[in-house]
Deep mutational scan, measured.
Amino acid sequence: AQASVVANQLIPINTRLTLVMMRSEVVTPVGIPAEDIPALVSMQVNRAVPLGTTLMPDMVKGYA
Results as ranks from 00 to 15, higher is better:
residue 1 A to S: 09
residue 1 A to C: 05
residue 1 A to F: 14
residue 1 A to E: 15
residue 1 A to Y: 09
residue 1 A to V: 13
residue 2 Q to H: 06
residue 3 A to M: 14
residue 3 A to F: 12
residue 3 A to R: 05
residue 4 S to C: 04
residue 4 S to G: 04
residue 4 S to V: 02
residue 4 S to W: 02
residue 4 S to M: 02
residue 5 V to R: 01
residue 5 V to I: 14
residue 5 V to P: 00
residue 5 V to F: 01
residue 5 V to S: 05
residue 6 V to E: 02
residue 6 V to H: 02
residue 7 A to V: 07
residue 7 A to G: 03
residue 8 N to K: 08
residue 9 Q to C: 04
residue 9 Q to E: 12
residue 9 Q to F: 13
residue 9 Q to S: 14
residue 10 L to N: 15
residue 10 L to T: 13
residue 10 L to E: 12
residue 10 L to S: 11
residue 11 I to F: 01
residue 11 I to L: 12
residue 12 P to Q: 14
residue 12 P to T: 06
residue 13 I to G: 14
residue 13 I to E: 08
residue 13 I to N: 07
residue 13 I to T: 11
residue 13 I to P: 11
residue 13 I to D: 13
residue 13 I to R: 07
residue 14 N to K: 06
residue 14 N to C: 07
residue 14 N to I: 03
residue 15 T to S: 11
residue 15 T to L: 04
residue 15 T to A: 12
residue 15 T to D: 05
residue 15 T to H: 07
residue 16 R to H: 15
residue 16 R to N: 11
residue 16 R to G: 14
residue 16 R to Q: 15
residue 16 R to E: 08
residue 17 L to E: 02
residue 17 L to H: 01
residue 17 L to F: 02
residue 17 L to T: 00
residue 18 T to K: 06
residue 18 T to L: 06
residue 18 T to H: 14
residue 19 L to T: 07
residue 19 L to D: 09
residue 20 V to K: 08
residue 20 V to F: 15
residue 20 V to P: 12
residue 20 V to A: 14
residue 20 V to I: 08
residue 21 M to K: 03
residue 21 M to R: 03
residue 22 M to Y: 02
residue 23 R to N: 10
residue 23 R to L: 07
residue 23 R to Q: 08
residue 23 R to V: 06
residue 23 R to D: 07
residue 23 R to E: 04
residue 24 S to L: 05
residue 24 S to Y: 06
residue 24 S to V: 11
residue 24 S to F: 10
residue 24 S to H: 09
residue 24 S to P: 13
residue 25 E to C: 04
residue 25 E to R: 04
residue 26 V to P: 12
residue 26 V to D: 11
residue 27 V to F: 02
residue 27 V to A: 06
residue 28 T to Y: 11
residue 28 T to K: 04
residue 28 T to F: 09
residue 29 P to H: 06
residue 29 P to I: 10
residue 29 P to D: 06
residue 29 P to G: 03
residue 30 V to G: 09
residue 30 V to M: 11
residue 30 V to H: 11
residue 30 V to P: 12
residue 30 V to A: 12
residue 31 G to M: 01
residue 31 G to C: 03
residue 31 G to R: 01
residue 31 G to N: 01
residue 31 G to T: 00
residue 31 G to I: 02
residue 32 I to D: 01
residue 32 I to F: 03
residue 32 I to H: 01
residue 32 I to W: 03
residue 33 P to K: 11
residue 33 P to S: 10
residue 33 P to T: 08
residue 34 A to Q: 09
residue 34 A to C: 04
residue 34 A to E: 10
residue 34 A to V: 11
residue 34 A to D: 12
residue 34 A to F: 07
residue 35 E to V: 13
residue 35 E to W: 07
residue 35 E to K: 08
residue 35 E to P: 07
residue 36 D to L: 11
residue 36 D to P: 01
residue 36 D to V: 13
residue 36 D to Y: 12
residue 37 I to F: 03
residue 37 I to H: 03
residue 37 I to C: 03
residue 38 P to D: 08
residue 38 P to I: 14
residue 38 P to H: 15
residue 38 P to V: 10
residue 39 A to G: 08
residue 39 A to Y: 13
residue 39 A to S: 11
residue 39 A to N: 14
residue 39 A to T: 15
residue 39 A to K: 14
residue 40 L to C: 03
residue 41 V to L: 08
residue 41 V to A: 10
residue 41 V to I: 14
residue 41 V to K: 05
residue 42 S to I: 03
residue 42 S to N: 15
residue 42 S to K: 09
residue 42 S to M: 09
residue 43 M to K: 15
residue 43 M to N: 07
residue 43 M to H: 15
residue 43 M to Y: 07
residue 44 Q to F: 10
residue 44 Q to A: 15
residue 44 Q to W: 07
residue 44 Q to D: 06
residue 45 V to S: 05
residue 45 V to C: 03
residue 46 N to V: 14
residue 46 N to Q: 08
residue 47 R to K: 13
residue 47 R to N: 10
residue 47 R to E: 11
residue 48 A to P: 11
residue 48 A to M: 12
residue 49 V to G: 01
residue 49 V to M: 05
residue 49 V to F: 03
residue 49 V to C: 04
residue 49 V to R: 03
residue 50 P to H: 08
residue 50 P to Q: 11
residue 50 P to A: 12
residue 50 P to Y: 08
residue 50 P to I: 09
residue 50 P to C: 08
residue 50 P to S: 10
residue 51 L to Y: 13
residue 51 L to W: 15
residue 51 L to V: 11
residue 51 L to R: 10
residue 52 G to H: 12
residue 52 G to D: 13
residue 53 T to C: 04
residue 53 T to V: 10
residue 53 T to I: 14
residue 53 T to L: 08
residue 53 T to A: 13
residue 53 T to D: 11
residue 53 T to R: 06
residue 54 T to K: 04
residue 54 T to V: 10
residue 54 T to N: 02
residue 54 T to C: 04
residue 55 L to R: 00
residue 55 L to A: 00
residue 55 L to T: 01
residue 55 L to F: 08
residue 55 L to W: 00
residue 56 M to L: 13
residue 57 P to Y: 06
residue 57 P to Q: 09
residue 57 P to L: 03
residue 57 P to F: 05
residue 57 P to M: 06
residue 57 P to C: 05
residue 58 D to N: 10
residue 58 D to A: 13
residue 58 D to I: 07
residue 58 D to K: 04
residue 58 D to T: 11
residue 58 D to S: 12
residue 58 D to Y: 07
residue 58 D to M: 09
residue 59 M to P: 00
residue 59 M to G: 03
residue 59 M to D: 15
residue 59 M to E: 03
residue 60 V to F: 06
residue 60 V to M: 04
residue 60 V to D: 01
residue 61 K to M: 11
residue 61 K to T: 13
residue 61 K to P: 14
residue 62 G to R: 07
residue 62 G to Q: 12
residue 62 G to P: 07
residue 62 G to H: 07
residue 63 Y to E: 04
residue 63 Y to H: 06
residue 63 Y to Q: 04
residue 63 Y to F: 06
residue 64 A to D: 12
residue 64 A to K: 15
residue 64 A to T: 15
